[in-house]
Every structure is written in structure tokens, then in C-alpha cells.
């Protein structure tokens, strides 16, 4: 039901909005939503932090960029290769990394993210180095070109819809419950027979592949990529989208991605004060609504509704 409403909303937006600037902004929100959704599965539901997710975003983008721009592959052939590549790298990274917990995991992923960034920057024969990789082709279906504007908007939001369905089904399943169990108490989760380290590895891989998909969509939208789009600050921005939108909230990812895509755009009016305002907003949200915007609103609503429920008296049953 929710999905149908969502699809209708996307459709009306796509058909009514004609200003290309707005379409572009919405397309970016879609790409960021996919990133945030993936990280939310890892961070919000399983409680495992990743400060290097931009690496997988970059991996997806560079994989398709190199295959199509350098080697002349069709983007549609590059897509499965890019996703599979992200899958394999994420798995190899996760295997030793997810034995770590808490800050140590955060630092490990941070280190991986920095190394990936340095590889993008320094392997210039393949990636174009600091000056970037140019000449990534736009997507085409037959003779129909899916370049920027409406077609790309629908492509991206179609992917968002699919990602939403996948994540929502995942959350409301045996796997999703096990993930949340790990978040609440890893000790108790293991005592329920959950193979916590294995599950953490798979959810990490899952979220990395979604980031890889976002990277693919990004690369063919802007047709030019450079390392700075996948650096440490981008990893931090993805984390921030998840936390501001609301951890363990699928719709929160959409909200967080929207806020963090529109905010910098809107902050341009502050010119030199842009960073100051951005930092202040970030801190203020975390201080006053640490559970994120979505949860914050929902919790206030539920609390006012739940007052009717009085704690049951154990001796009377």
C-alpha cells in the first residue's frame, strides 16, 4: 500500500515538474536515498557503524566509468560487473573487519575508505587521478536516450522504489529481526542462535552493493567523476543522512537524504557562513532530536496517543 502511494507520488512529481533544475535536485535526492537506505540497514538496524561507505559508492562509479569510458563496454554490461565487484570487495573487507565492534569498526571502515580514496586519486592511468574520469556515456535503451531530465528521474526513482521494497521486506522478516536483535543486545542475539558475525558480514555486503548501485547511477548521470565525490566527507555525509533522518527508519533515509541534499543548496545564501550554519544545524539536530527527525516526530505522536495504556499489574493475572 505504502509502495503504491509512493509510486503515485513519484509519478505525479515526475510528470508535473518540468524545471530541469528541480528534476536534477530530485534525481540526486533519489541517488542519496539509495545510499542512505543501504547504510541504514547496516547502522540503524544492525547497529554497526561504517565511516567509509563512500568507498563503495566510488567503487560502483569507477567500475562502470572505467569499463564504459576506457574499454567501451555497454553500461548495461558494466552494471552487473560493477555490482559484482562491489560485492566481492565488500565481502573481503567485511570478513576480517566485522570481528571488530563499536569505534574499532568505525575506524577500520574509515581507514578502508581513505585507502580507497587514495587509490582513486593516485591510480591516474586508470582513474584519471585528481583531474577525474571523463567521457562516461549516458544510458540508452535501444535508440532511446536515458540522459538527464525526466527519463533519468524515473530510472533513479524506479531503483529507489525497488530498494525500498527490498529493505522493507528485509526488515519485516527473520533476517530483519535478527539484525535488530544484534543491535539491541549482541550477547542475547548469540544466545538465540544467531550467527552474529556472519549476519553482520552479509548486511555489510548488502549495504555496499546498494552504494555501488548508487555509484553506477551517479556516474552515468554526471558522466564525469573525480575522487572528491567519494572522500571521507562524503562517507560522513551518508552517515549523517541516516542519523538525521532516523536510524532504523526506512522512510527516514528518504527524509535524511532530502534534507542533506537540499540543505547545502539552500545554504549557499549564507556564502561564507555556509559551513558554520551547516555545523550548527548538524549539532542542534543531534542534541535535541538524537533519535532523528522521523523518529522524533513519530515518538511525540505516539507518546500523546499511548497515555491511555497503564502498566499492567502482574499480581492480577
Amino acid at each position: 500500500m505504502k509502495q503504491i502511494l509512493f509510486a503515485v507520488a513519484v509519478l505525479t512529481m515526475g510528470l508535473t515538474i518540468s524545471q530541469s533544475y528541480h528534476l536534477q535536485l530530485l534525481t540526486f535526492i533519489g541517488i542519496h536515498t539509495i545510499l542512505a537506505l543501504g547504510l541504514n540497514m547496516l547502522m540503524g538496524y544492525a547497529g554497526q557503524i561504517s565511516l567509509g561507505h563512500a568507498a563503495f559508492y566510488g567503487l560502483g562509479a569507477y567500475a562502470t566509468g572505467i569499463l564504459t569510458a576506457h574499454w567501451g563496454w555497454s553500461p548495461w554490461a558494466a552494471l552487473p560487473v560493477a555490482l559484482a565487484g562491489t560485492f566481492v570487495v565488500a565481502f573481503l573487507v567485511a570478513l576480517p573487519m566485522l570481528k571488530l565492534s563499536g569505534y574499532y569498526l568505525g575506524m577500520g571502515t574509515l581507514g578502508f575508505g581513505m585507502i580507497a580514496f587514495i587509490v582513486f586519486r593516485e591510480w591516474s592511468s586508470l582513474t584519471g587521478g585528481d583531474s577525474g574520469l571523463v567521457g562516461i556515456p549516458s544510458l540508452t535503451v535501444g535508440t532511446f536516450s536515458v540522459s538527464s531530465g525526466k527519463p533519468y528521474f524515473f530510472l533513479v526513482w524506479g531503483c529507489v522504489l525497488l530498494a525500498f521494497i527490498a529493505c522493507e521486506r528485509l526488515v519485516d522478516s527473520r533476517v530483519g529481526r535478527a539484525l535488530r536483535a544484534i543491535h539491541d543486545s549482541e550477547k542475547a542475539a548469540a544466545a538465540m542462535g544467531i550467527d552474529t558475525s556472519r549476519l553482520k558480514i552479509w548486511v555489510f555486503v548488502f549495504s555496499a552493493v546498494l552504494a555501488g548501485l548508487a555509484g553506477f547511477l551517479y556516474a552515468h548521470l554526471v558522466t564525469f567523476i573525480s575522487p572528491n565525490s567519494f572522500g571521507f566527507l562524503v562517507s560522513i555525509r551518508i552517515v549523517t543522512m541516516v542519523v538525521i533522518g532516523g536510524m532504523a527508519s526506512i522512510w527516514g533515509s528518504l527524509l535524511g537524504a532530502a534534507v542533506l541534499t537540499i540543505l547545502p543548496d539552500w545554504l549557499h545564501v549564507f556564502t561564507d557562513y555556509e559551513m558554520v550554519v551547516y555545523g550548527l544545524i548538524l549539532m542542534a539536530i543531534m542534541i535535541f532530536v538524537p533519535q532523528g527527525l522521523t523518529r522524533g516526530i513519530l515518538d511525540t505522536y505516539e507518546r500523546s496517543r499511548r497515555k491511555a495504556f497503564t502498566t499492567p499489574d502482574p499480581s492480577q493475572s
Binding site: R177, A178, R180, D184, S185, A188, A189, I194
Partner: peptide, 18 residues
């Protein structure tokens, strides 16, 4: 050590994991 954020029913469902 309950899974505090989950419902009573969901706690038991996690118990069914194996």
C-alpha cells in the same frame, strides 16, 4: 537481556531463529 526496541511477539520470534 531483552531486545528492548522490539515488541513482545518479535522477541519470541527471534527466539525461533534456529
Amino acid at each position: 537481556e531483552l531486545f528492548g526496541s522490539m515488541s513482545v511477539l518479535e522477541n519470541i520470534l527471534v527466539g525461533r531463529h534456529v
